[in-house]
Design a protein around this nucleic acid. Structure first.
Lengths: 240, 240, 240, 240
DNA sequence: TATGAATGAGTTTTCATTCAT
DNA sequence: GATGAATGAAAACTCATTCAT
């Protein structure tokens, strides 16, 4: 698992550069406002070369979506593996928020990306709905069985849906809460808000532990170290 | 307050027809995929005439945003006025969800509309942040003072933010929750989910009343009548 | 029947100009080497305007094919109506050759136009195969019944096919016979060659008349007059 | 004279493979739709390598034209050598038709290949006009002197031209005669049609022999054997 | 010989906007 | 108010060809 932007093992470094630059520009200026010419020019590269590596603009977005979904699924699996430690769960939450922030153009323009784009819709079904949504629901239900959450199965299911919606909405519209776009701040505030959202559903037995974790700043050395393990080197390569 | 699509009192009926058709097409096909030529053709009208009434495509969106914000602010005032009756509050919630659904293209593509669009950004600041967000927060704090909500001021503030995010996310991405696009269903499910979201924060004294309202179907005659008063004639004019 | 380049009654003069210019450029330089930019520039017109009148380059070719087929079918009907006069038949033959010469790019590049072009293939089936080919066969069989041709039905059927192939081949590759591209010369030589091709199949009773017509030059006043009636004013508008 | 695709004796087998693949793809998909990248990919070869062996796409077509013309001239010489046996003449005719079918893209798109292509035009002059056309005319005139054809020198000259045009048209547009693209069928029907075309010009003394040959199927062992000698090994190398 | 990434001019097409009538 | 033809800049994408290795 080197770089999540590599679609297959051995993808060319140029394709990787194109994907990275596209991600950066899409995030900064909006996918709509970034043309293939912009991307190529940004990389001091000919359009022809860009199209040598990707068959279309859609193909680039598709590849980005792929790598977004891949890592998202992996993070979900991590959360599942670490679900007995609240501290580690929060670290994963941070990593998820950071990841969504890294690919925020997808969350911000997914609605405008979908109409009349069969391929992306298909990917969306596969990743977002079938994997991510199912994974989050499953995680929440397990946490309920572990005793973390109180409430009926139906209630926890709904909680999972709301959690996912809030997560995405937070990333897509941080400015709605009067937030400027400093990455770390978005992640930290996001964590705080999501934890606040979950608080009423935490079982009494866990509340003390929950408050301890919730009030801890992101800078605790242990968390940082763990976070490093999760989100480490490859992120540096992807995000501007 | 006849039609919320009129920018000023006495605006031409043609401009109104243009705005209505644009809203319909934007919602159905995505703003990105609807050209000014489409709109004009849809109205069996010349492009030139369209540009006689609106100075640009952006101007149309601006007008739609205006009318969206106007009614939104009015609904918020209604909620404030009716905040002593849970039944009526829910009616307003329905009206808000319906209104957001009517203008869903704004919620779905706001992120992709903003970059490099100073005017829209300004409107956004004015309406969404200064009015709507402030209004919701203020409403929630008043409801807290009325005894409906339990929690610290900070907690209720956060609740208001989450409430607004969830509302918007629910409208913008109904498919994320496996929801098909049947308007009435979206509204009804949205109400149910938002109430479920609020439930943990309802003070014990109100819980019985809350459950009564939450379990009531949308078809209770009284509610319908009230809803009619709220969402009445102008909606018929706007929505196909 | 004003101009065969008008697809419907009342087509805009600009669309007509585009079609005419395209026909001229396609004939002169080959469809392959003529871009929509060339056409627009040739008419001192913006590309956008060209695409306002035709939805694609294919659409232009389609329109040309349409008008080619329309007039071709009409000429065939004329031939049928005049089949009792050899003189008049020859006049129609001239008109057909002239018409094919006017649209020679179609005959020259039909093979390269077809692959992967469903619409044109369909038009081709409709016009060339179902109308023209059937029409020529039917004409030849009637002429056989009139006593002009000798031979079995099968033989005359084959004669009709060969006649059509020769006609097209003559227009498509006049240079193959060492012919320069002077329009009138192509037509006159084509007529002579096609008549020579038919000669062996003429029944003895008609041979004297046939030779008289075959040896007559194209300039006989009567023929010219008749030809004028057939191929008259609209040709001037179409062909450079 | 090993492979007609070798431009000089001893040309590299790679160049040969390129020419063969190009021929195949041009025939199947039309020269217009086959890019040099297609050809290279089809051969699992790099573009660079293709351009090492041929200086341009035109160069490939040129080479194909060369080998087409070479074999055509050779077949014509064969026809001349065998002109005293009708049976053998027909075998040569079959070989010619097969050869033209093997290179049908040239006949189908010659018109669209010529404009602005000086080299090809030159080749065309050299092969088609100076050699093939002259050769066919000379053959027909000799056959006239041998007593096979009746008619004036001028008439036989015209017959030769028509024969060549029909041959090419038959190959270039088999669909024009409602013919599907099965190679053997095209050849067989072509022979039948061309013989029917010649029939009226056969001198009475030869008619019995002519009918015998014309009605013989292509499968007579002797013919097949002879055909093998004519069209043998090199065809296997050229055609997919 | 061979590779394959890179080039760049060109192609079709789109669309917000203008303008003469 | 209304028409609709016209504009032009820019978008996505293609492809013959080159070049460093």
């Amino acid at each position: 698992m080197k770089s999540t932007l590599k679609r297959k093992t051995g993808i060319s470094p140029t394709a990787s550069r194109i994907a990275q630059a596209s991600l950066q520009l899409f995030n900064q200026q909006g996918e709509r406002n970034v043309t293939t010419n912009h991307i190529a020019r940004h990389l001091a590269m000919s359009t022809g070369n860009l199209y040598y590596h990707f068959s279309s603009k859609e193909d680039i977005i598709q590849a980005l979506y792929q790598s977004y979904g891949d890592r998202m699924a992996w993070l979900l699996a991590e959360a599942d593996a670490r679900r007995h430690s609240l501290e580690e769960l929060v670290v994963v939450l941070d990593a998820v928020l950071q990841h969504q922030w890294d690919y925020r153009f997808l969350l911000q323009s997914s609605a405008s990306l979908f109409p009349f784009n069969a391929q992306l819709r298909a990917s969306y079904q596969k990743f977002e709905v079938e994997q991510i949504a199912v994974g989050i629901e499953s995680l929440f239900l397990k946490l309920r069985e572990d005793g973390l959450f109180e409430g009926s199965v139906a209630a926890i299911r709904m909680l999972a849906v709301h959690f996912q919606l809030l997560q995405a909405a937070w990333i897509a519209h941080p400015e709605r809460a009067g937030q400027s776009a400093a990455a770390d701040q978005v992640v930290e505030d996001g964590r705080r808000q999501l934890l606040a959202f979950l608080r009423p559903h935490i079982a009494p037995a866990w509340q003390a532990a929950f408050e301890r974790v919730a009030s801890a700043s992101a800078c605790l050395p242990a968390l940082v170290a763990l976070s490093g393990r999760l989100a480490g080197s490859e992120r540096a390569a992807l995000c501007y």
